[in-house]
């Protein structure tokens, strides 16, 4: 087991380095020049641009820049943002809170909701409830999140005026303590509802199909033939066998927690990682982008390794020696 974890950690590090290397190169190959953006649009003079280029090391070749970047990272430094001149590490740490509040709540809610509805629908397979939720799940799965978000804003914020349109806190009032939490919660309702509505179908379908799959296995007939109560067959044997795929997809989605959701955060002006990344792409803020990519790929690798280990614990057919 220890050897397995060690092996997976090593390959994880390799994957992170490779993906950062790709991202590092790709963003620099993309059209657009950060120096011209920083220097301003009105015909900056060439000398000034040359100075900036040297300052940021952009006059060097991409491999040279990458080596410099690796040296920096090995000292725990992700560099400074071109746009705000602040340390990238600080900027990322600042966004962790808001992003996790949004993504973690949304993921936990969608998993719980989707799995429970899925299990119930599978149990009532073919009933009107099953048909209804199946159709709803296709509908919401096919709905783009940003469109749904906008519709939510139009209905609940602009028209009914029940909830705030965007942001994480009301800027007018400087709430503290419990009031602050309430305020954030009010701002959370719309973005989280949007995310839950678009993510639940995914977990729903996985739970429903794996329960149906487990219910049709031969061993269920065996237990039925032994006179075991249907409720016990379902609760002990069907669920235990059907939970495996849900664990996999849940683990995978945990990897994306920190990267946030670009579209949802943008629509709701949520001050999180996704929106920061979106802005950074527009401004060609190389250090900030590379930093975000690095954090994201590390998270995804860790999540993958955790899922594999967890899987070995819950599925006896998987062994790590």
């Amino acid at each position: 087991m220890k050897r397995y974890i060690g092996k997976r950690a090593l390959s994880g590090i390799l994957v992170v380095i490779l993906s950062v290397c790709f991202n590092f190169t790709l963003i620099r190959l993309a059209p657009g020049d950060p120096v011209r953006i920083i220097a301003g649009l009105d015909n900056p003079n060439e000398q000034q641009i040359q100075v900036l280029r040297e300052k940021y090391g952009l006059d060097k070749s991409i491999p040279e820049q990458f080596v410099m970047f690796l040296k920096q990272v090995s000292q725990g430094d992700l560099g400074y943002s071109y746009v705000s001149d602040r340390p990238v590490v600080d900027m990322i740490v600042e966004k962790v809170g808001p992003t996790l509040t949004l993504t973690l709540t949304a993921v936990l809610l969608s998993v719980t909701l989707g799995t429970l509805i899925g299990i119930y629908a599978a149990r009532k397979n073919g009933s009107w409830f099953d048909k209804l939720v199946c159709n709803l799940s296709y509908f919401f799965d096919a709905t783009p999140g940003f469109w749904l978000g906008l519709m939510m804003i139009i209905v609940f914020a602009s028209y009914l005026k029940l909830l705030p349109t965007s942001g994480m806190v009301s800027l007018k009032n400087n709430y503290t303590g419990l009031k602050y939490i309430q305020d954030v919660a009010r701002h959370l309702v719309l973005p989280i509802s949007t995310m839950v509505l678009t993510q639940t179908p995914y977990y729903f379908r996985i739970a429903r199909s794996s329960v149906l799959q487990a219910m049709s296995e031969d061993y269920i007939i065996t237990f039925r033939a032994t006179g075991m109560k249907e409720s016990r067959i379902f609760n002990k044997y069907v669920l235990r066998n059907a939970i495996l795929p849900t664990v996999t997809v849940l683990g995978m989605s945990l990897g994306f927690l920190l990267s946030g959701s670009v579209l949802i955060e943008t629509v709701f002006a949520w001050p999180g990682m996704g929106r920061m990344m979106f802005t950074a792409i527009g401004k060609r803020d190389y250090p900030l982008l590379t930093g975000i990519y690095l954090v994201t790929s590390v998270m995804i690798c860790i999540a993958m390794i955790l899922v594999d280990i967890l899987y070995g614990l819950i599925d006896p057919r998987i062994r790590y020696d």
Partner: peptide, 8 residues
């Protein structure tokens, strides 16, 4: 397949 694969 006569018995559940995840129970002893």
């Amino acid at each position: 397949n006569a018995l559940s694969p995840v129970h002893k």
